[in-house]
Structures are given as structure tokens and as C-alpha cells.
Simulated scan of single mutants.
Amino acid sequence: MTPFNRFVAILGITLVSAQAHAVDVSFTSSAGLAQSYGNTYTTTVDGLTISASAWSSTARANQFEQAALTLTPGFGLGVCSSQEKANCTAKNFADALGNKGADDLILFSFSGAVNLQSLSMIQFGGDSDLSIWAGAGAFSPAGLKASLIGTATLYDNTSNVNTVKTVSLAGFTGSYDWIAVAARIGQNNDFAKLQSLTINPVAQPVPDAATWMTMLAGLGLVGFRVNRRQA
């Protein structure tokens, strides 16, 4: 293969690798997580790093403060608030993402922009309504009330059967750096553990016409020089 053809092949591989594909991040097969206030769970899938942290509206005036993130193999992510104490047990679903006594929230942050596809959860206690937010840029709910995060997208559960449920995130049509999932704000009977999150890393922008012309001119110059050397 000539240097010119090798360069063209590398360029083709680079363009193909820039195409986005869905990433399914599971939280059920991981080992248990040491529980402490402010702990995080971080994983990297296909070069994308996803970090999860726990929060609860147990601070003064129902403001969010750091809680303990729980990870139960086979079940998924939940939250222990300062009211429930770190290392809380499954009694009365205390270690789940819930809203009894205080509103629990799990924040997922991404190392790059993503499109949101869906999440799955397992329901406890007969109901699992959710409030969901997403945004771009750095974000922390510390010291915020739920109303200050913005208008939540609501997921209304329609079945009291405690099974795994899939929540579509198709309503989030942009690209996002984070997503926050809470037990339904304003209620007190919702409990769930988050099992997986499906996202689509945002592909690199396709070069505009001027950039393509510059690239083609460069390729032509490389080809011309290679042909001269071979001659």
C-alpha cells in the first residue's frame, strides 16, 4: 500500500469511528458499593465515563445535600439519606430511591455530551413515579430545592406490579452532560432502584464544505508528491 493510500485508509477509519452508537450502562452486575455520604460510583464504557452520586432533600428548607449511594448487585442503585443513615437496610425500602420523608435523587454526569435513550428500574412498594431533569455543563444540586433545578419531566407509573420497568427518555431531544433522576417530587410513596441507563454519545461534527475542500486539497497535494517520488 502506498503512503497516499495508507493515509486515505486512516482517514476513512477516523471518520467511521466518529459515528455514534448506543451505550448501555448496567448497575446490576457491579460489586457492592461502600456506603458513605458523598460517595460516587464511576464506570467507563467505550471511552465514555459515567459518574453517579446520591442526594436527598434533608438539608435545611428541603434543600438537597449529599447522601449515600447504594449499589445492590442484581437490583441497582438507590439512596440512603442522612435521616435513614449510611448503610441503611432494605427495611421499608430505606435503601431505594424514594420520597418518603425526603426526596432522593441520583445524578449521572458524563465525560462527554450524550443523547438520552432510556433507563430501566425495578419498582418497590407498588409505585415508582419519577421526576427527571437533564442539562448541559457542570451541575450540582447541592443547596438547591427541587423547584430551582428546573421543570422536571414526569414519569407516571401505571402498574403496581413490582417488576423491572423501562422509562423512555425520548422527550429529551438535545445533547446533555448530566441527568438527574428523583422519586416523584411532591409524593411520598414511590420507591425504585435504577438498573441501567442507555445513552448515545454525541458524534463529532461532520466537517463543513470549506473544511472538506481543505482536506481534499491536502489529499491532492499528498498524492501529487507521492506520484512524483515514484516517477
Rank of each mutant, 00 (worst) to 15 (best):
S82H: 05
S196P: 00
P141Y: 03
V167A: 06
T44D: 00
T28C: 00
Q187W: 11
F75C: 06
R228M: 13
N115A: 14
F93A: 06
D95C: 01
Y176D: 01
A152Y: 10
G150R: 08
A102S: 14
N160H: 11
F27I: 05
D95P: 04
P205C: 00
Y37F: 15
A31D: 09
T214D: 11
S175V: 12
M1I: 11
A231C: 02
D129A: 09
S53H: 05
R60C: 04
T14P: 00
C80Q: 01
T28E: 07
T211V: 10
P205D: 01
N115I: 03
G101P: 07
T58D: 14
V222P: 02
T43F: 01
N92L: 14
L119H: 01
S17T: 12
M121I: 15
V222Q: 13
G98Q: 14
T151S: 15
T70C: 05
I10F: 09
G101H: 07
Q230L: 10
S30G: 06
T42D: 02
G74P: 07
Y41R: 07
F191E: 06
V8E: 09
D24L: 08
T72S: 05
K145A: 10
P141V: 09
V25H: 00
G174S: 12
S140P: 03
Y41C: 00
A34E: 14
R6Q: 14
D129S: 15
G76H: 01
L77D: 00
L148G: 13
A182Q: 07
W212H: 11
G126F: 04
E84N: 10
D208E: 02
D46E: 15
D208G: 04
L48P: 02
S56R: 02
G143P: 06
S140C: 03
T2V: 07
